[in-house]
Computed example of a mutant assay.
Amino acid sequence: MSEATNDNGPCAPNERVLYRERSAFQDILLAQEPSGHINLTLDDVWQFRSQDEHVFHEVLADTPILMAASPAKVLILGGGDGLALRNVLRYPAVRQVTLCELDPCVLHMTRTIPAMVELSENSLADPRAQIIAADALSFVETVDARYDVVICDFPAQTSPELSRLFAPEFFRTLEAITHEHSVVSIQVSQDPAGFWPICAAVEASFEWLHPMLANLDAADAAGAGDPPSGDDDNWADFVVASHTPQVVRSEPAEGVRFLTGPRIPRLRIRNRAGDHFETDEYGQLPDYR
């Protein structure tokens, strides 16, 4: 296999390629480090690394489940790696999950590559999960259902094609498939200049917002007491939204390692201007100036 590149530079020569495919939509590369950790890139853009993905997916997927009054019916848009689905399925209150992934090759990778089957806890095979290979925008425009929780697990907005999934028109379609107490969670992963316009687009359809920030390095320094790095490469931001104000209503499931009920309000981004994000958890980090 040829060497691949991602946001952090070329893959190390001693990394082992577990799966590589040029699909009809993107270049997919799943590689394993000598440590055993695996990394996924799509079109040379990093998607996850197994040593810290739990931080990302707990904030994205567990937060709306913990806030929803009744998270029985869940929709995941994107997320073909099965990791958000894995987290959602840990909650007995979840009765039915529909996952809509654009790329069948990503689904094939998750179902067949042993490292991904293990990491995802074989979530795509769970009887509560309905897996659909389709364009998310087309799906939400035609579906005749209302969901208690909607999780948008798309790649960050790095192309015109992806921009439509962060536009006001898309969030209006989500409004039509939710109800008064539904909770919507969206991974954004943009600096403040890109993050707040997306929050404004969400706010046009969902009055209550809970913007959140997570330091993925928390996985490496768990229990060490080290302060978070100011390096903006290892941070992710999200927006949780609803038609009505929401609070944390339940406890995280067994297996959750980063997220706690008290931590959810501490991860909330308080400011809405400037070159940094401000939270109780991290102070004024990272600084994007």
Rank of each mutant, 00 (worst) to 15 (best):
residue 1 M to H: 06
residue 3 E to I: 04
residue 6 N to K: 14
residue 6 N to G: 13
residue 7 D to V: 14
residue 8 N to G: 03
residue 8 N to V: 07
residue 10 P to N: 09
residue 13 P to M: 00
residue 15 E to C: 15
residue 16 R to L: 14
residue 17 V to F: 12
residue 18 L to H: 14
residue 31 A to W: 00
residue 31 A to V: 08
residue 36 G to C: 07
residue 37 H to R: 08
residue 38 I to A: 10
residue 39 N to H: 10
residue 40 L to C: 05
residue 41 T to I: 02
residue 46 W to I: 07
residue 50 S to H: 08
residue 50 S to A: 07
residue 51 Q to L: 11
residue 53 E to C: 09
residue 54 H to D: 13
residue 54 H to Y: 14
residue 54 H to F: 15
residue 55 V to G: 06
residue 55 V to N: 06
residue 56 F to N: 12
residue 60 L to K: 05
residue 60 L to C: 07
residue 63 T to V: 15
residue 64 P to Q: 11
residue 64 P to V: 13
residue 68 A to L: 07
residue 68 A to H: 01
residue 68 A to V: 03
residue 69 A to C: 06
residue 69 A to R: 03
residue 72 A to V: 04
residue 73 K to L: 11
residue 74 V to Q: 03
residue 76 I to K: 00
residue 80 G to Y: 03
residue 81 D to N: 11
residue 82 G to I: 11
residue 83 L to R: 15
residue 87 N to Q: 15
residue 89 L to D: 00
residue 94 V to H: 06
residue 98 T to R: 13
residue 105 C to D: 12
residue 106 V to H: 04
residue 108 H to W: 09
residue 109 M to P: 10
residue 111 R to M: 09
residue 114 P to W: 09
residue 124 L to F: 11
residue 125 A to M: 04
residue 132 I to K: 08
residue 133 A to D: 01
residue 136 A to S: 09
residue 137 L to V: 15
residue 138 S to G: 13
residue 138 S to P: 01
residue 140 V to L: 05
residue 141 E to M: 13
residue 143 V to H: 06
residue 143 V to M: 02
residue 144 D to M: 03
residue 144 D to L: 05
residue 145 A to S: 12
residue 147 Y to E: 01
residue 154 F to E: 04
residue 157 Q to I: 09
residue 157 Q to V: 12
residue 162 L to K: 04
residue 163 S to Y: 06
residue 164 R to K: 13
residue 165 L to W: 05
residue 166 F to D: 08
residue 167 A to G: 08
residue 170 F to D: 03
residue 177 I to Y: 01
residue 183 V to I: 11
residue 185 S to P: 01
residue 188 V to S: 05
residue 188 V to I: 15
residue 188 V to G: 06
residue 189 S to M: 15
residue 191 D to W: 04
residue 201 A to T: 13
residue 202 V to T: 01
residue 203 E to M: 03
residue 205 S to D: 01
residue 206 F to D: 00
residue 207 E to Y: 00
residue 208 W to H: 11
residue 209 L to A: 01
residue 210 H to Y: 10
residue 211 P to T: 08
residue 214 A to N: 10
residue 217 D to F: 00
residue 217 D to P: 02
residue 221 A to T: 15
residue 223 G to T: 10
residue 225 G to C: 14
residue 236 A to R: 14
residue 237 D to K: 01
residue 241 A to I: 04
residue 246 Q to A: 04
residue 246 Q to T: 04
residue 250 S to D: 06
residue 250 S to A: 08
residue 254 E to L: 13
residue 259 L to Q: 11
residue 262 P to R: 09
residue 263 R to G: 01
residue 266 R to I: 08
residue 267 L to F: 12
residue 267 L to Q: 02
residue 270 R to C: 02
residue 271 N to Y: 00
residue 272 R to S: 10
residue 276 H to I: 05
residue 277 F to P: 00
residue 277 F to M: 05
residue 278 E to W: 07
residue 280 D to C: 04
residue 285 L to T: 12
residue 287 D to C: 12
